[in-house]
Amino acid sequence: MSNSQPEVKTEERKTRRSKAWNKLVDNLKKLTTELKKKISKNKKRLKGISSGKTTRSRQKAMQKEELSSETTTRKQQKAKRKAEKKQNKKPRRRAFPIWLRIIVVILLCAIALVIGAIVGYAIIGSGKPSDALDMDTWRHIIEIVTKTE
Rank of each mutant, 00 (worst) to 15 (best):
K41I: 07
K41T: 08
K41V: 08
N42A: 09
K43I: 11
K43N: 03
K44N: 06
R45H: 14
R45Q: 15
R45C: 04
L46I: 05
K47L: 03
K47A: 10
K47I: 02
K47N: 09
G48K: 02
G48N: 03
I49V: 14
I49P: 06
S50E: 14
S50A: 10
S50C: 15
S50Y: 12
S50M: 12
S51E: 01
S51A: 02
S51D: 03
K53G: 09
K53M: 14
K53S: 15
T54F: 15
T54R: 13
T54M: 09
T55L: 01
T55I: 01
T55Q: 00
T55Y: 01
R56S: 07
R56F: 12
S57Q: 02
S57D: 11
R58D: 11
R58H: 09
R58N: 06
R58C: 08
Q59V: 08
Q59K: 15
Q59I: 05
K60M: 13
A61V: 07
A61L: 05
Q63R: 12
Q63W: 06
E65Q: 15
E66V: 06
E66Q: 15
L67S: 13
L67H: 11
L67F: 12
L67W: 15
L67R: 09
S68N: 11
E70P: 02
T71V: 06
T71P: 07
T71S: 08
T72Q: 15
T72H: 11
T72V: 14
T73H: 02
T73A: 00
T73N: 01
R74D: 10
K75M: 09
K75H: 07
K75A: 10
Q76C: 04
Q76K: 14
Q76E: 09
Q77H: 07
K78H: 11
K78M: 04
A79G: 02
A79F: 03
K80E: 03
R81C: 05
R81H: 06
K82D: 10
K82R: 11
A83Y: 03
A83K: 06
A83Q: 04
E84D: 07
E84R: 11
E84Y: 02
E84I: 06
K85N: 01
K86F: 05
K86I: 11
K86S: 08
K86G: 02
Q87T: 14
Q87N: 12
N88K: 15
N88Y: 04
N88L: 11
N88H: 07
K89Q: 08
K89Y: 02
K89M: 15
K90R: 08
K90N: 03
K90G: 00
